[in-house]
């Protein structure tokens, strides 16, 4: 097209014929003066080349053994980098522009890459905790085309924000006719956001309370189970559960204090008694 300067509806700003049509070899590989542009031949060839690369990329991951395999990462990345720079150099004309534009674009690109790499290194390599967290909390997914997908019901308990636990929405609902203390535990009390009781709640930020009714009696000499539980609720740091009881995990004491401080004022004395009563039933 560029070898055939316009003849219909000419634009007044352009000087026709001022630029030459570089040969294909020179266009792609040679040194050409500024102002040289390609035409249908050059751009068409490049488009076919890019389409072939895209096809090759697709064919690479067709064999099932290669899908998601780390073997294909390098070839795929190399192919897309080739595509990327072909478009930048020829479609975006950067090969034929002032070096200043290269520098500007590459500076932005390099900054973007550094930011991306830093993020990935920070969260993906140096701090692997989130991945371990996910592994422990994973829920299976299965396809159910017709019915409502069951994973919608599988909402994971929200870790409570520092200060106050929200009313948990996603825990296993209390069975009907359950203990009023259990209703408090999974309901407005907010306990279930942090504590686990098998079949009732799945919190992980605080110690699990399975069998606390019997275990509490042996926690401290001189304390009955009831006294121990009540005091643990009212003064969360009085008998911090954790390593001493053979639990595998340490808990965040500051988070516990601030969270419990947000919850306690909302509970009446009767609520506390109901909770203690309920926890005592856990044998």
């Amino acid at each position: 097209m560029s070898s055939n300067p316009g003849h219909e509806g000419a634009l007044p700003h352009e000087e026709h014929g001022a630029h030459e049509d570089a040969g294909i070899g020179r266009f792609f590989f040679g040194r050409v003066p500024a102002g040289v542009h390609g035409g249908l031949k050059q751009y068409g060839l490049l488009a076919i080349f890019l389409a072939i690369i895209t096809l090759v990329e697709f064919l690479i991951i067709v064999p099932e053994g290669l899908q998601g395999s780390s073997v294909v990462i390098a070839p795929l990345v190399i192919l897309s980098v080739i595509k990327f720079f072909c478009v930048v150099a020829f479609f975006m004309h950067l090969k034929f522009e002032s070096p200043l534009l290269w520098q500007i674009f590459v500076a932005g690109l390099a900054l973007g890459l550094v930011v991306a790499l830093s993020l990935v290194l920070l969260f993906g390599v140096f701090r692997p905790t989130p991945r371990a967290f996910s592994e422990n909390r994973q829920a299976p997914f299965e396809h159910h085309a017709e019915e409502k997908p069951h994973y919608e019901a599988l909402v994971v308990p929200t870790p409570c924000p520092v200060g106050a636990c929200p009313t948990p929405g996603g825990n296993v609902p209390a069975p009907t006719g359950s203990h009023p203390g259990q209703a408090l535990f999974v309901g407005v009390g907010g306990c279930s956001a942090c504590h686990t009781i098998d079949g009732v709640a799945q919190g992980i930020l605080g110690p699990p309370l399975n069998g606390i009714g019997s275990a509490a009696a042996n926690r401290l000499p001189g304390y009955s189970a009831e006294e121990y539980i009540r005091e643990s609720i009212l003064e969360p740091d009085a008998h911090a559960a954790g390593t001493a009881d053979g639990l595998s995990q340490d808990y965040d004491g500051n988070l516990m204090l601030s969270t419990m401080a947000g919850i306690l004022p909302a509970l009446s004395d009767e609520d506390i008694e109901n909770l203690v009563d309920y926890l005592l039933t856990l044998q």
């Binding site: 097209m1 509806g9 026709h16 890019l50 478009v87």
Partner: peptide
């Protein structure tokens, strides 16, 4: 990808003054 090709052809047409 093909739209990039047609776009570069549009740029070439504009540069040639071929409305």
């Amino acid at each position: 990808l093909m739209s990039s090709f047609t776009m570069v052809m549009a740029v070439a047409a504009a540069r040639n003054g071929n409305q």
